[in-house]
Design a protein around this nucleic acid. Sequence first.
DNA 1: GTTGGAAAGTCAACAAAGCTGACATATAAT
DNA 2: ATTATATGTCAGCTTTGTTGACTTTCCAAC
Lengths: 168, 168
Amino acid sequence: MSERSAAQHSDMLLFLTDEQLRQGIEAMFFAYQGFTADPDRILSEMAYGRAHHRAVHFINRAPGTTVNNLLGILGVTKQSLNRVLRTLIEDGLVESKVGRTDKRERHLFLTDAGAELERKLSDAQRARMRAAYRDVGAEAVTGFRAVLEAMMDKDMRRKSCALKESCT
Amino acid sequence: MSERSAAQHSDMLLFLTDEQLRQGIEAMFFAYQGFTADPDRILSEMAYGRAHHRAVHFINRAPGTTVNNLLGILGVTKQSLNRVLRTLIEDGLVESKVGRTDKRERHLFLTDAGAELERKLSDAQRARMRAAYRDVGAEAVTGFRAVLEAMMDKDMRRKSCALKESCT
DNA sequence: GTTGGAAAGTCAACAAAGCTGACATATAAT
DNA sequence: ATTATATGTCAGCTTTGTTGACTTTCCAAC
C-alpha cells in the first residue's frame, strides 16, 4: 500500500515489522545524540553539564517555578536537583526567593547571567531543530510532534502540556 | 495557511517561532524519557544500566562487530565501553572472539542468554513505539523519521544508514 | 629482517550525576 | 498541639562518562 493511501485512511491497520520499529528506535537514539551535542559542547567549556542545562531551561520556561515543581518535570530526586541548583545559585545564575503566600516554597528565577547562558544554549539547540524542520517541511514536523507526544508517558504529556499556552 | 497546502508545497518557507521550536525541544526531552523508561525499569531489576542495553542492542544488530566499531556507533570512549562489555562477558551474555585476520580485534556476539535479554528489552521498547505509531498513522511516522534523520549529525546518519538493509 | 609507529584493547583513577536513607527546619493544615 | 508538606543537607553508593599509562599486534619503511 502506498504512503498516501495509508495517510488518507488513518483508521487503516498499520503493519510494522520488527525491523521497521528497530530502525525507529535507532533513529531516536542517534537523533538524541545530535539533539544534545551542541549544548553539551558549550557546557563542557564551563564547569556545567546537561543537568544544569535542564534546570536553566525549565526555570526560564516557567519563571518562579518551585523546587518541587521542577522535580516533577525533570524526574530526578531532590538531592540530585539540589546539587545542581546550589551551584547555579552560588554562581549567580539562578535566584531563589521565599514564597509570599507559602513561605516553605522557594521560587526560582534566572538572573541576567542565567538568562544569558540559557539563550546561548537554546540558540544552539534551536538552530539545529530549525535546520531539521526546514529540511523536511511542515507536514513532517506535524508528524514528528505527534509521534513524540504519543511516545511520552501520560503524566509527562500533561506536564509538557501545562507548559504550553493553548492546552485543554 | 493550512497543513495540507503547506505539505503540498514543501518548497514553501517554513516560519517557526522560538516558542514552536521550544515546544519541539521539550517534546524531544519528554519523549526520550518515555522511550527509555521501559527498558530502564527492566534493567534496574538486574545489575545493569542503559549502557548495557545499548551494547547488547548493537551487538544483536551487527553480530561479530568489533569493539572499535561499537565505539564509533555509541560515541563513548573505549574505556567506558570496555567496563560494560567486561561485565557482560563475565556474566555470559556476550562472547568475545579474537579476530582471525587481525588478532588485535575482538569480534562480539550475543550468547543465548544475551539474546534473551535483548529480546526482553527490545520487546518493551518496540511495544511503546508500535503503540505510538498506531496512534498517529503512517503519514506521521514518515514525518517523524524524516525529522530524526535531519536532526542527527552527518556522520551518525551514515552509521545509522550502514545498519539498514537498503542504503545508498 | 628489523624496527618504529599506529591501532586495538585493558587497567587504574577520577568526575558527573543519578540514587537511597536519615535528619533538620520552617511553615501549613487539622 | 500534632501532623503533614516543602525544602535543604549530609553521607554513601552506583552507573557511566572521562584521561593517562600500558600491552599486544600489525604494518610499513628502512
